[in-house]
C-alpha cells in the first residue's frame, strides 16, 4: 500500500458527504437539498414518515440513483462516476426483500458474493460465517420462500455483508416484523456496530432510532428538520416526560383549551391530549386537584415521536 493511499484515508474523514443534495423526478421533488456527513464507524439514521425522501436518499448513497444536483461523495468518490467501485464497498439491505427465490438460502449468499467478483473458495467460507451470524445455519438448504419474515431480513442482511462492506445501508430494516423478530435483528445490528461497521439506516420507528443510532436527522417532505443524537434531540425539542390524557374523542379539543397553561407545552391530538413537562406525576396531581377528570392518564418518557410531532405537527406513522 503506497503512502498516498494512507493519507487519503485518515480515520476521521467522513465516509459520506452530502451537501445540497437534490433529486427530482420530473416536477416532483423527492429530496430537496439535504446536507449531512457520516463519520466512519458511526451509526447514522434518517428518520421520517413515508414519502419523506428517505429511500431516495438511500438510493443515491447506494450509487444506484443519480442526483439531480448538489454534491455527494461516498468514501471520497463521486457515485456518478465510480458507481461499481463504490458499490463494491457497500452492503445494501433494501426496504422490501429482493432475495433470489429461485435459489436456496446458502446459494443466495454464494451467488451474491460472486457478483462482487469474489472467488468460489472465498464466498464459500464467508457464506458459512454469515449464516452463523444470521442464525440461519439450519436453513442453509431451505427455500427462501419457506423462511419467516424475520429470517428473510436476516438473510438479506447477511447477503449485504458478503463483500465485507465498509458501509451498511439499511432501508427500514424492521418494518413489518413482529416484536421478537425485531429484537433479534437489533441485536445483530448492534453487534455490527460494535465491530465498527458504519451503519446508515432509515426508519419511521422511534424506538429503533433510539436503539441503533448515534446520530440522526429528522426528514420531512424532502428536507432536514433537525439533526443530533436521539437524546439531544429530545432535550432540545421536547420535555423530559409526557403526560398523556384521554377525555374521549369529543372532549379532547375542549379540554386542551382548558389545559393551555399546563406543563411546558400542550399538544391536542384527535384521540388524546399531550402535556409536555419535566414532572409528569406532579402535573397530573395538580390537574386532578384542579378538578379535571381524564378517562385515562399515562406518564411516560419523552421520545423521538414527540420530537417529530413538535417539528412537523404530525405523527410519524400515518
Amino acid at each position: 500500500m503506497s503512502f498516498a493511499w494512507v493519507t487519503l484515508d485518515t480515520v476521521s474523514s467522513p465516509v459520506i458527504v452530502a451537501s445540497d443534495l437534490v433529486k427530482r423526478y420530473g416536477e416532483v421533488v423527492a429530496v430537496g437539498g439535504v446536507s449531512f456527513e457520516v463519520a466512519p464507524g458511526e451509526s447514522f439514521g434518517l428518520l421520517g414518515p413515508n414519502g419523506a425522501g428517505k429511500s431516495t436518499t438511500m438510493r443515491m448513497i447506494g450509487a444506484v440513483s443519480t442526483r439531480t444536483s448538489g454534491r455527494l461523495e461516498i468514501l471520497g468518490l463521486d457515485p456518478d462516476r465510480y458507481g461499481p467501485e463504490i458499490r463494491s464497498q457497500l452492503g445494501v439491505v433494501p426496504q422490501s426483500d429482493n432475495l433470489d427465490e429461485e435459489l436456496r438460502v446458502r446459494e443466495n449468499l454464494l451467488v451474491y458474493g460472486r457478483y462482487f467478483g469474489m472467488t468460489r473458495a472465498h464466498v464459500s467460507g464467508r457464506a458459512d460465517e454469515l449464516l452463523a451470524f444470521a442464525q440461519l445455519q439450519d436453513k442453509a438448504k431451505a427455500k427462501v420462500t419457506d423462511l419467516s419474515g424475520g429470517m428473510k431480513r436476516r438473510l438479506t442482511i447477511a447477503r449485504g455483508l458478503m463483500n465485507d462492506p465498509r458501509i451498511l445501508l439499511l432501508d427500514e430494516p424492521t418494518t413489518g416484523l413482529d416484536p421478537q423478530a425485531r429484537h433479534i435483528l437489533w441485536d445483530r445490528l448492534f453487534r455490527l456496530k460494535e465491530q465498527g461497521t458504519t451503519l446508515v439506516l432509515t426508519t419511521h420507528y422511534m424506538d429503533e432510532a433510539e436503539q441503533l443510532c448515534d446520530r440522526l436527522v429528522v426528514v420531512d417532505k424532502g428536507a432536514i428538520m433537525a439533526e443530533g443524537s436521539p437524546s439531544s434531540l429530545i432535550r432540545r425539542y421536547s420535555s423530559r416526560e409526557v403526560l398523556e390524557l384521554r377525555f374521549g374523542a369529543d372532549r379532547n379539543a375542549e379540554m386542551a383549551d382548558r389545559l393551555r397553561d399546563a406543563g411546558d407545552r400542550v399538544e391536542a391530538l384527535p384521540d388524546r391530549v399531550l402535556v409536555y413537562t419535566a414532572d409528569g406525576e406532579g402535573e397530573l396531581a395538580r390537574l386532578t386537584d384542579a378538578g379535571m377528570r381524564p378517562i385515562t392518564s399515562l406518564v411516560r418518557r419523552s421520545s423521538l415521536e414527540d420530537v417529530f410531532l413538535r417539528l412537523t405537527g404530525r405523527s410519524l406513522i400515518e
Binding site: 500500500m1 493511499w5 494512507v6 487519503l8 484515508d9 468514501l75 471520497g76 468518490l77 462516476r81 465510480y82 458507481g83 461499481p84 467501485e85 463504490i86 464497498q89 467478483g117 460465517e129 451470524f133 455483508l161 465485507d164 462492506p165 465498509r166 455490527l192 465491530q195 465498527g196 461497521t197
Partner: peptide, 25 residues
C-alpha cells in the same frame, strides 16, 4: 467483519471509467 482491517481506500480504476461505470467484467 467490519472491514476495520481492510481499510484500503477506494482506488478509482481510471481505465474502466470510459465504460461509464456500466461494466465490471
Amino acid at each position: 467483519m467490519s472491514g476495520l482491517d481492510g481499510e484500503a481506500p477506494l482506488r478509482p480504476r481510471t481505465s474502466r471509467r470510459a465504460a461509464g461505470s456500466l461494466y465490471a467484467g
